[in-house]
Each structure stands twice: as structure tokens, then as C-alpha cells.
Design a binder for these strands. Sequence first.
DNA 1: TAAAATAGTTTCAATACTTAACTATTAATT
DNA 2: AATTAATAGTTAAGTATTGAAACTATTTTA
Lengths: 147, 147
Amino acid sequence: MASTERLQEQAIERFWETVPPLWSTIRAHLRAQATDQFDISVEQFHVLRYVRRGTDTISELATAKNISRPAISQAVDVLVNKGLVKRVQSKQDRRYVELTLTDAGDHLLDEVFKETREWMRERMGALNAAELEVVIHAMEAMKKMLK
Amino acid sequence: MASTERLQEQAIERFWETVPPLWSTIRAHLRAQATDQFDISVEQFHVLRYVRRGTDTISELATAKNISRPAISQAVDVLVNKGLVKRVQSKQDRRYVELTLTDAGDHLLDEVFKETREWMRERMGALNAAELEVVIHAMEAMKKMLK
DNA sequence: TAAAATAGTTTCAATACTTAACTATTAATT
DNA sequence: AATTAATAGTTAAGTATTGAAACTATTTTA
């Protein structure tokens, strides 16, 4: 199926033109937000994000973020010291430490997200309804690439 | 225009569900590639990428990558020591140092890209022709977000 | 011509990462 | 049931990456 192959090539090309710079822009915005207003790094912000979504043990976080367990353990240390995360030993299996956001951590995340959504909304103002639909469907389709 | 707003919300939601994990997966693949086969970091790989595309001075790189000039200067040091990049003082303005890839750097980039494209092609195998079209159009539309 | 601005580098301290070694706990083997 | 192996997490030590401050070289501006 030659035409599918050509479409693949095109999709890859466009992906590389668009996603890395866009993601980099978003990261820069997040960094400014997280650093200036809350004095945490983008990586720390991502850890909070993962914890809230239920990736709440050291090993899961390490896998999700593709870094070593000690690295995550230490990153969590910082967040605990900042009062944003709590460690609680699991009752089912006491080897595990379950991580939860404190109220402060929860609130911080809300604030950053609120601001970031506002910022993205501005960016998406450049897209009309039809384009937004296309983006929504594309995101849906691209999930298949994650598997 | 209430429906456009709802579409925006949806698009943002899907974007956050899809792009960060996908990009993270791609980065992990790049890391494995670049580290295992060529002993360079993902960041160094990106520097090579920028240099080839014409972002070829320290200041431009610093701006493009959102890090400080000393950091880039040192990162370039590493690449020069590895024989992947050359520094050449500009003739027009001798304050500038123009960066170019050596043959080895050029070849490395080709290899990594080739392999990464192959890998992405496999991932995109999960998408049919119609979905690929949607992705292509979405990428096109999202470029507007870069302004 | 003197002062200001720009490009890049060096130095130094802080941060974040990895590997290796360790403790505590649970699962598997005999 | 007791011993061994595996798993979750932490600590420690060494390396790499980063940014701020101070510096040199060069060009622009006043």
C-alpha cells in the first residue's frame, strides 16, 4: 500500500516540525510559571502531576519518567520538604511507599494548570472550529502510538 | 461562540493526554539510541540537530533551547571534543563563532534519524490512511500555535 | 576616541542524575 | 517451616549539567 507509506512519511515529517518546538514552548511557559511563582522545577511539577493522576509509588514514577529509582526518591524528598507531597507506607505491602499530594501540592497544581490552560486557550485561539476538531481526532488517533 | 470554547477545552484535554507521554516515549527511544550507539545524551543530539538546521551560534542555540550561554558553550565543548562539531570564528563579525557539523557529526545524525524514523513508522503502523491524514492536518493546524 | 554593547568563555557552586551497596519486606523454593 | 530470592525504597559517592558572575575579545554608538 504505497499511498499509506507516503502518508506515514508526511505524518512523521510534520510531527517533527510541529511537536518538538510546540512542546518546548509549553515547557518554557511551565518553567516560568513553576519557577517564578512556586519555586519548583518543571520536573518537580511533572512529578506532582503524575502523583495526582495515581502514579503514586517510587517505582511507578521511575518507570513513567524514565529515570532511576534513586533519582525519583531524591526528587520526592525535595517535594516532601517543600510540603507538597506526603509519603505513607502501604498497609497492603509495607515495602511500598504511597505518595499523595498535600493540600498545598494540590493547590499548587490547580494554580499552574489553570494558568497554563488559559495560556493554551490563547494559543488555540488561532484555530477555528474545524481545525480544533481535526486536532481532537488526531490526538485520539495518536494515542494508538503509545500502546 | 460557546461551541468553539468547548472544542478548545477538549483539544487541550486530549493534547495533555497524548503529547507529553508520546514525546516522552520518543525521547526515551532517542536516549537509548544516542546513548547506547553513540554515547551522547539526548540534549547533545538536539544540539546537533539545531546546528544542522542552521542554528549555528552559541547565542542562537541558547535562545532556541532556553538555556544559558555558558551551558551551551560547555555542551558544545563536549561535542567538539567528540569530533562531532567544529567551531569557526566568523569572518564578518569575529565575535561570533560559527558551528558546523563534522562529517562524523553529520553521519551520526543521519544514523539516529534513520533509525528513529523507522521506529516511528512502526508506531504509525497502528494508524490507517484516514487517521494519518487527520494527523497531518492537525500538525499543520497546530503550527499556528507556535505563532 | 572613549564608552557601551555584544559574543563567547572560564570558574565556581548548586542541582540532578546514575551506579553500587544497603535495609526492610514479601514471595518462592526446598 | 526455614531458607533463599526477589522487590521497594533509600543512602552514598561520583559525574554531568546548569546558571550566575566575572572575564576577554570584538564591534557599535555617542
